[in-house]
Design a binder for these strands. Structure first.
Length: 267
DNA sequence: CACGCCTCCTGTGCGC
DNA sequence: TGCGCACAGGAGGCGT
């Protein structure tokens, strides 16, 4: 659920707290559910955090010693300082006494320490598409990739390859805004332009409201995002389309819940 | 090589 | 009341 806007909101709170902080020691859940849940986190001990950046849904913190701390919130991950409950899966003990805690009920999140820029351990990050709000997100290339793929458009967006950071919520929102059927395999130049603009608009609005909170997502200060009440498609199945009044339909596409307007969004 | 399907995980909410 | 089960989904792996 944490997608680009949620991760960016977390990043903005973490950056001033962590930049310049030294990591004294680390702790990870000794029984990781997944073999790669935590990768070489111990290598962060004794290093100083130089900043907190973001690519797509990944938080990237360069460390001294040419290392990099890579963090992904998965479905239910969040960061809090000095938190103590049974869902805390990892901790960074800072030299100033604070403890950065990674809480993750469903354990889909990941933390890794790698040589800076070496993302072989994280193939999705290594092959990540451009940031949607940057100049790197070229309409020309985006349209070309949409024309070339044989996937349905929504699963293609979720692959993180044509653009970074789009997850289930904002994919539904952007496709609704661009009036494109999520299962469409034919997205021409005009519709690609609509989708390109819609992704940027949806992402920018959600960042402004510090993300969408349904249940688990919260920021480092414990607050919720304010974007949930602005959602038009995601989670709105059975309610009338705000554009045409037709009841929004919920289906499963590529194994993901997908809500769209059967009238506005045609294949 | 690209695509699609399955799995990981656990709390929640529903039906019987 | 209590149980069982479907459901939520980001990323990775694997089969076709």
């Amino acid at each position: 659920m944490p997608e680009l806007p949620e991760v960016e909101s977390v990043r903005r709170q973490l950056e001033p707290e962590l930049t310049g902080a030294a990591i004294a020691e680390t702790w990870c859940d000794p029984i990781p559910a997944m073999p790669r849940e935590f990768h070489d986190v111990h290598r962060a001990a004794g290093r100083t955090i130089l900043g907190v950046g973001r690519r797509g849904k990944f938080l990237l913190a360069p460390l001294t010693g040419d290392l990099e701390l890579v963090m992904h919130l998965g479905m239910t991950g969040s960061f809090r300082f000095d938190l103590d409950d049974v869902y805390v899966r990892a901790r960074l003990y800072l030299a100033d006494g604070r403890v950065l805690c990674f809480r993750d009920v469903r354990r889909f999140g990941r933390i890794a320490v790698v040589d800076r820029g070496d993302y072989r351990e994280l193939p999705t990050l290594a092959a990540l598409g451009p940031e949607p709000l940057s100049d790197e997100f070229h309409l020309e290339r985006f349209a070309k990739e949409l024309a070339r793929t044989r996937s349905a458009v929504k699963p293609f967006l979720l692959s993180q390859k044509p653009v970074a950071g789009v997850g289930n919520i904002y994919a539904d929102e952007a496709l609704w805004l661009a009036r494109i059927h999520p299962a469409s395999r034919r997205v021409g130049r005009d519709r690609a332009a609509q989708l390109h603009a819609a992704i940027r608009e949806v992402m920018a609005g959600a960042i402004e409201r510090e993300g969408t909170t349904f249940r688990d997502y919260q920021m480092v200060n414990g607050e919720s995002g304010r974007n949930a009440s602005f959602l038009v498609a995601y989670g709105q199945g059975g309610r009338p389309c705000p554009r045409c009044g037709t009841l929004l339909r919920k289906v499963v596409l590529g194994g993901r819940g997908t809500t769209y307007c059967p009238r506005c969004q045609r294949a």
